[in-house]
């Protein structure tokens, strides 16, 4: 049976970000290309969230492992490149909810221009209050910022907007 790109994409919803296990790589927006040959050879292209993301190779392996167990798949290749440059607007609506479920304030949609006040105006993922302050735009991973909610008096992390 000839597999479709959609068959592959469906399977990739099962592959989660190794550092944020609530969000799939598809919803994160980093799956930028899928091709299936007549003989069911599959090639998947990924784009890095951050150039220095240490999970790049792990994500390639997770993608390859998931596709290999699809019935009828022949050879699998996964490559990472910058042909499409990732930005946080590429995270799906489902993905934004998944980030929040993990306790991360989702990034605001942006128009290609980001200043610190954009980050300062972040709603608390726990209580929803906007009475928060940005502690630092750098966090425990490259994609996170650190905030404090003055309403529920908790520190929280945000997934920072990237252009």
């Amino acid at each position: 049976m000839k597999l479709s790109e959609e068959n592959i994409r469906e399977a990739l919803y099962d592959v989660k970000d190794p550092e944020i296990p609530t969000i799939s790589l598809v919803d994160l927006g980093i799956v930028t290309g899928i091709s299936v040959s007549d003989t069911n050879d599959v090639n998947v292209q990924l784009t890095p969230t951050f150039a220095g993301c240490p999970a790049l190779r792990i994500m390639e392996d997770l993608v390859a492992d998931r596709i290999k167990i699809i019935d009828g798949v022949n050879n699998v290749t996964v490559s990472t490149n910058f042909d499409v440059q990732w930005n946080t607007n590429m995270i799906s609506e489902v993905g934004l909810k998944a980030l929040k479920k993990h306790g991360l304030a989702p990034p605001p949609r942006h128009d290609g221009y980001i200043e610190l006040d954009v980050l300062s105006d972040t709603a608390c993922p726990y209580c929803g209050s906007r009475n928060t302050t940005l502690e630092t735009p750098f966090g425990p991973t490259l994609c996170r910022s650190m905030h404090y909610c003055k309403n529920c008096k908790q520190a929280f992390e945000g997934f920072k907007p990237v252009t």
């Binding site: 890095p48 951050f50 150039a51 490149n81 910058f82 042909d83 440059q85 990732w86 930005n87 980001i114 200043e115 610190l116 735009p137 750098f138 920072k160 990237v162 252009t163």
Partner: peptide, 16 residues
Amino acid sequence: KIARKYRGEIKYHTMH
């Protein structure tokens, strides 16, 4: 392509 990607990352460095 790489430069377009790095711009967004370096924005955080200059803001800092």
